[in-house]
Design a protein around this nucleic acid. Structure first.
Lengths: 144, 144
DNA sequence: TTGCGTGCAAAGGTTTTGCATGGCA
DNA sequence: TGCCATGCAAAACCTTTGCACGCAA
């Protein structure tokens, strides 16, 4: 495990800047490589993977695994300073594959419950709820 | 998508029997292949992958993706007939990697909440909560 | 007999690693 | 200067697919 960043390289700055400009977006390593290639300053994919790991360890970026075989998604979360506005959760639709943001105070409560009753420190920046989204539920009803 | 099973083959019987005998366990495709190889009736890994997909579609087995690069985990869940005893959730420790079973009525409530308030049908047989388990929390405290 | 299931090997996609080079502090 | 970061290519890993053969109904 490479651990946290020790140097502040040009690549780290560029990558962080890009992720920061895409808040709320779910970005893959391939997206990053493509972006910088098209902007005339290509970045090696090994570098992107390694920097992403550091950024996650630094707590600046979250990593989401949405499906096997699919690439991991990354999202800028800054200093986790969303404390006042309630935690943001993610839901993944098993049918259409969309990854949905969900702000919900009630869900925030389970974090406390898990810790107090089960001793488990939930990491909402990593957890994904799987299920079926509203749109796909409706479609399924119509098909049957 | 291969869809559900239409034939009842020897391999399906063997695989289902093995999974059923290992209730509460998290089993990978590699585990299955190794098991049957050592027991003198090797099963092709492509067959295991394809049968697993059918068993998941049939609702007899759940599939959990715990980490990118790690193999998927499968677990026998029978006919989902745990209705009376509250839904079983899974927690994955980001440090030691263990996958923990958790029976909790309070957690079951969020399923209803997600559906009623957000129109999202949660699939507890697929969802994994990420975080830090009790043991690893204690270790971290001691290290600091 | 028909069509699905099986098994082997090869391909596919994502992520990791080895190693020489380059850059930050 | 010392150590970490980068980049390329190759390897590793899990999973899927093509195709011929076998088996259930």
């Amino acid at each position: 495990m490479p651990g946290r960043s020790k140097y502040n390289t040009k690549q780290r700055e560029m990558l962080l800047g890009y992720l920061e400009s895409q808040r709320r977006a779910h970005i893959t390593v391939a997206d990053v490589c493509e972006y910088f290639k098209e902007h005339g300053s290509p970045m090696g994919q090994a570098t992107v993977y390694r920097q992403m790991e550091k950024l996650v360890d630094d707590g600046l970026v979250s990593k989401y695994i949405v499906d096997v075989g699919s690439p991991a998604c990354f999202e800028y979360v800054g200093e986790h300073s969303h404390a006042g506005e309630g935690t943001c959760f993610h839901c993944r639709c098993e049918i259409c594959g969309s990854l949905i943001h969900m702000h919900c105070d009630e869900l925030s409560l389970i974090k406390g419950h898990l810790f107090e009753e089960h001793g488990f420190k939930l990491d909402p920046f990593r957890t994904v709820f799987y299920g079926i989204c509203e749109n796909c539920s409706k479609k399924e009803e119509n098909d049957i």
